[in-house]
């Protein structure tokens, strides 16, 4: 706390509840860690000490129940596609998906002849941010995650929509 310590009396912050909620959500989106192929190595590198994802509030969870963001890092095979879908359904709302690498966005090097590869995760689950690259560098992944945080920050979950 340093310079802020012992400087104030009891405080009140006035803000929109919506804003505070989205701000809180956006600064700690825990991600669901599972790697499917080579891209997973970059994701691990991003989470490790050099790039350190935890400084932007993201930490890996191993269970879909505890995760907010699913980073699909790698080639999604047809066999895995059914499981990815199931895992997405097991995540609690609000949930977000990041398609990392060209495999997850479009099938990548396996388009159009890879008989066993899903041609983009957006065919089975909704994707929020696409990160191109084969594999994307940790910097690109972080940029994508910050984009996602921006997106979450601009959400207004409590505001009623379609007022007629």
């Amino acid at each position: 706390m340093g310079i802020l310590e012992n400087k104030f009396q009891d405080n009140i912050i006035v803000a929109k509840l919506d804003q505070i909620l989205s701000w809180a959500r956006s600064t700690s989106p825990w991600y669901f860690q599972f790697g499917l192929a080579c891209c997973a190595i970059e994701m691990m590198a991003t989470a490790a000490s050099r790039h350190d994802l935890e400084r932007i509030g993201m930490m890996p969870r191993s269970s879909p129940r505890q995760a907010d963001v699913m980073i699909v890092a790698g080639t999604v095979t047809m066999k895995m596609a059914l499981r990815v879908k199931k895992l997405y359904e097991q995540m609690a709302d609000p949930k977000y998906v990041i398609a990392m690498g060209s495999c997850a966005t479009s099938g990548g090097p396996y388009t159009p002849h890879g008989y066993h590869v899903l041609k983009g995760v957006d065919l089975i689950i909704p994707v929020d941010v696409y990160i191109p690259g084969c594999p994307p560098r940790p910097e690109s992944l972080i940029e994508g995650l910050i984009k996602l945080q921006e997106k979450i920050r601009h959400e207004r979950p409590l505001t009623r929509k379609n007022v007629s």
Partner: peptide, 14 residues
């Protein structure tokens, strides 16, 4: 290759 697998479409050309 098949055209779909468990309801997942397999586009031949995206």
């Amino acid at each position: 290759g098949p055209d779909s697998y468990h309801g997942i479409i397999i586009p031949k050309v995206k």
